[in-house]
Each structure stands twice: as structure tokens, then as C-alpha cells.
Amino acid sequence: MSYQHPPAVRRVLESLVPVVCPPEAVALGLTAAIVDHVALTMSAVPPLFRRGLVLGLTTYDLAAMVWPAARGRRAHRLPPELAERWFERWERGLTPVERELTHAVGQLLKFGCYEQPAMLARLGYTPQAWIEQVTRRRLQVYGDDIRRAEAAIVAPDPLRPPVRRPRTEVG
């Protein structure tokens, strides 16, 4: 699974980071990392969905040129205030295509934003440390029970004898 944004799509996504993500994401210099993460996520989604997003973002970019306020500029070249207004127009668009595109792109960017370690650190979100702590405690307190349960996984069932001799050789 490898997907790379076409350059034009990458430019649009970079221009949308300040619109969708919190200001601190931009302040922390995470724009490129967030857009990279979107590519990673898009590598896992169905190809049809991926192609739709690429087409939709290209349309979003070009369609701005016929919006009078943009004065012929593509969406990724709009100043912040106009970029915000253009996104909002699509968010509240008359067609489901506009609304679904901004919804999906927003989801991808927000997901990518809050997967950045710097953003998670701001929240004090430290699950891995917690996992390591409780894993140790579990083994210390319940080690014997756990070993018994593991043995039971492969213990034969006395109530249901085999109808045939169990297989021992494979392949």
C-alpha cells in the first residue's frame, strides 16, 4: 500500500490544514506531517474512495477560480480569510458531493493532526506508559491464573470425544 499525493492535491491539503486543524498545529510546524499522514491513511482506504477524494480536491481547488471573491485564484492560493469562507461554502454546499467531500477531507486532516506526537503531548495523552504499567501489574498479581488459562486453551474437552482420530501430521 503506497500512495503519494499528486503535487496539486498536496498543495490543496496543505492550504486546508489552517482551516480544519487547530491553530497550534500550524504553530508547531506540523502541516507537512499532517498531510503526509493523510497520504498514509488514504493508502488504506478503498481505491474508489481514494480516486474520488483526489478528484474532489482537484475540483475544489479549481472551482474557486469561478468564485468572484477569489478573483481567479485557485483555492490553495487564497488568503486565510477567503480560504475559510470557501471551505465553509462547500461545507454548507447545496449538493451532497460538496458536503461529503469537506466532511471526508476534514476527517482525514483532523485524524492526522491528532496522531502527531506533539499534539498528543499537549493533551497529556500517554496510553503506552499506562499499558506498560498495567501489563506489569497484571502479570505480577495474576500470573498463576493467567498460566492456567493459557493451558486450558488447548486442553481436550472430556465431554466431546473425537469422532475421528485427531490429526498429528500436517502437509
Binding site: 487547530p22 497550534e24 476527517q107 483532523k110 485524524f111 499534539m119
Partner: peptide
């Protein structure tokens, strides 16, 4: 996790930051 909350939130921009 935060990424999933952010993704499913209707907020964006500064409002998303405040929520998160």
C-alpha cells in the same frame, strides 16, 4: 483515542482545539 474523537467531531479550527 484523540484522533478518532477529533475525526468524528463536527468542530474544526480553534473550536476543535478547545474541545480537544
Amino acid at each position: 483515542p484523540p484522533a478518532v474523537i477529533a475525526m468524528t467531531s463536527h468542530e474544526r479550527g480553534a473550536a476543535l482545539g478547545a474541545l480537544m
